[in-house]
Design a protein around this nucleic acid. Structure first.
Lengths: 343, 343
DNA sequence: GTGAAAGCGCTAACAA
DNA sequence: TTGTTAGCGCTTTCAC
């Protein structure tokens, strides 16, 4: 059923039917009711592509998820973020166009999305400390919201972020309070800003407590199990054996656990492990990890907010720039609890 | 830059330019070259919506990911599957439209996608043993491929699946060979067919080995940490204390581990844990879990194949039905290795 | 080998 | 309050 058929069926012009359905005020209420009824009966929905073509709005938002290489794992955090965004789009009648692409192809993907008029705006994921995508998107004039922050940006832009720096400062402080001094940070790639900010938070706490920073207790790489295993193994065998690990993702933590148990050590007895992972907030329901308090600030919430921000932006470019820093955050203890180092 | 501008710039008609760009044979090769050059220079891409309207093809595929409730976690497996599909769509010029929706809204979402002409086909995720979506999609005439199988379907349909049954039979056999008899299965919701098939595989092995099936060693629910923790805790405190766990997802396994360590037991010493999780294939690189062999059959591969299958179907409806059962599968050992029960 | 013209299904000026 | 008409940017007959 299309507009023409519907209007013929009603004995009205396409215009009137269109106006009735789109809530224009000048339509007679009786007519509107009639039209709405017939539309519902005939299960009529406007053809999205025709509507888009006529209005010039794509009614779609692009999410481009970068992966480092063809075989890279997709970070599960994206799934939650996208779920939140999808919820918002459903509410406002937008579609979500997803592309998962190798980082090197991203530039051409943005250009292509814009040139094809496939989307009205995009969400930028996984920002780097100095991210060339900002300039590109400004250049092609595509509205965007960044999930995270670009540390070295000179210009304003829309972003929403968790307070990674504060979270890692707090986590580190917690370990310090437990008597630890040799605290390892097994971090993500520090070219990505989330990891960089986590590093800064970790260092903040060390500095405030006059604890020296050991370079060999700082690791930074892609978040995989193998990375966690190998890094922890090396650290445990080194001179500066850490008594605590601060781990940037539960995937990595699986490897860290493996290394620890292989070294004959026990978490909660010989060593302490704190995992920080936004996604884990979902595990937390029911007090799964009672050792640490944790505010539930889910990535999904960020997705909802980011999408709303972008739609507002598209609606009214004057709102620019909008920023949200989610102060609530998550510190997740190891399942076996922290090891209190005797002073 | 649109077609009109491009053709005026070239001094040709829109028709010729369109034909040249779309590879029609009747175009003079010299002309084609000229057109292609100018198009590249002007960074011309056809307006997707105009193209769609003219051709009647949306050039987009819908993925509808169901979540049980508003606060349900999105299964990370979807991310990998979708990544694979996205790769295929990029190749063929299709877009991927993602919707994450509560199961109860799904029906209306499919109807809406079809009526709006937003997609040319859909991928059905998380099939149930008896899934009403098949009938619905057949009814509205939207081509689809199911990721998984609908156990009780009378009619044919396109699907691609891992051999969950065989994988769980093998995993169970492995534990039996290690001397275990009281083997717990902590499974997903058995209304979903993947979980049901896993259960059947588990039972296959028990039956073949004349091992009795203990009802209290079979659990089935949504895959969360808390579920794993509570179930394992109860099982460990019961009469039929299991000496081995077979766990249907690494998220659940985190809870199981927690329960085990809280009960004062050690994996690999007092108890054995096998986790099966397709997604974990990505962890496997580098022999992270050397205890078991494992063929790497990633969910991403399934995504690639499913997308190809669907595009073929759209191209030529006569190919129906297409089915792929991925025989390769994954058995992932616990990081601390299996416990060999003394006979 | 190329072009003119109609049409995909909708919205939005402009008229009435 | 409703209808007429043009047009969004492309593809595709049909004619040359």
């Amino acid at each position: 059923m299309n507009l023409k058929e519907l209007s013929e069926h009603l004995g009205l012009s396409q215009t009137t039917v269109s106006r009735a359905l789109n809530g224009y005020p000048e339509v007679n209420e009786t007519t509107r009711k009639r039209v709405e009824l017939a539309a519902a009966e005939g299960n009529y929905r406007p053809n999205l592509r025709a509507m888009s073509l006529a209005t010039g709005r794509a009614m779609a938002i692009g999410h481009v998820i970068p992966v480092a290489s063809k075989n890279d794992v997709v970070n599960p955090v994206f799934a939650e973020f996208v779920a939140g965004a999808s919820q918002t789009y459903n509410l406002y009648g937008y579609e979500l166009m997803l592309t998962i692409a190798e980082s090197k192809d991203e530039e051409s993907i943005y250009k292509s999305l814009a040139a094809k008029r496939a989307v009205d705006g995009v969400i930028v994921h996984s920002p780097m400390r100095n991210d060339p995508r900002l300039a590109l998107l400004n250049d092609i004039g595509l509205p965007f919201v960044v999930h995270g922050r670009v540390c070295d940006s000179k210009t304003d832009y829309n972003w929403i972020d968790m307070n990674n720096r504060r979270a890692f400062k707090q986590a580190t402080q917690l370990l310090i309070d437990l008597g630890h001094e040799k605290i390892a940070l097994i971090n993500g790639q520090e070219t990505l800003s989330f990891a960089w900010l986590r590093r800064l938070g970790y260092l903040d706490a060390l500095t405030e407590n006059n604890i020296p920073e050991y370079a060999d207790l700082l690791a930074s790489s892609e978040l995989t199990e193998t990375y966690g295993y190998e890094t922890a193994t090396n650290m445990l065998a080194s001179e500066n054996t850490p008594s605590a690990f601060l781990v940037s993702s539960y995937i990595v933590a699986i490897g860290v656990r493996r290394a620890i148990s292989q070294a004959g050590l026990a978490i909660g007895k010989d060593i302490s492990v704190i995992i920080h992972d936004d996604e884990l907030s979902y595990f937390h329901n029911g007090g799964a990890f009672p050792q640490f308090t944790s505010t539930r600030s889910s990535v999904r919430e960020a997705g909802i907010l980011a999408a709303e921000m972008l739609l507002k932006q598209i609606d009214d470019p004057n709102l620019y720039p909008q920023n949200v820093l989610l102060e609530s955050h998550l510190i997740m203890g190891s399942s076996t609890g922290p090891y209190r180092k005797s002073a």
